[in-house]
Amino acid sequence: MPQQTPAEFGPLEVRLMDLAWARQGEFSVRDAAEHLASLAYTTVMTTLDRLFKKGYLNRRMQDRAFFYSARYSRAELEQRQAGKLVSGLFSNSHSSPEALISCLVDAVGQYDESLLDELERRIAAKREELRNGETA
């Protein structure tokens, strides 16, 4: 499956995240600015700061310089995005037509555990009843 950067990133954020994943380690603002030579240092610095605040990058300070690294791998991030997308689509899916999806069971939300236990007991009882009816 071709790899894609999650859809919520802007073009510069995409390039910086690609850099973070390619490096597989830490890099400074200067490293990033040299890699993206066409952009101003301050632009790169601001965008890295934004990605850190959004939670996509780790950051630490050393000798008055920030060093960044990817917080999630590309695959992990895509999974989280897919999970969020799916959760958002499936909230109230049965009662709302907006999602244009037909689900087997409401995919998000909580069921009462004691209710589920009770339902399982009833199912087991009916299974037993059916088995006894077949063998009788």
Binding site: L85, V86, C103, A107
Partner: peptide
């Protein structure tokens, strides 16, 4: 898909 565990759904029209 990876995501909420119990998804089984028909999408699209």
């Amino acid at each position: 898909i990876e995501g909420p565990a119990s998804v089984l759904a028909l999408t699209g029209v």
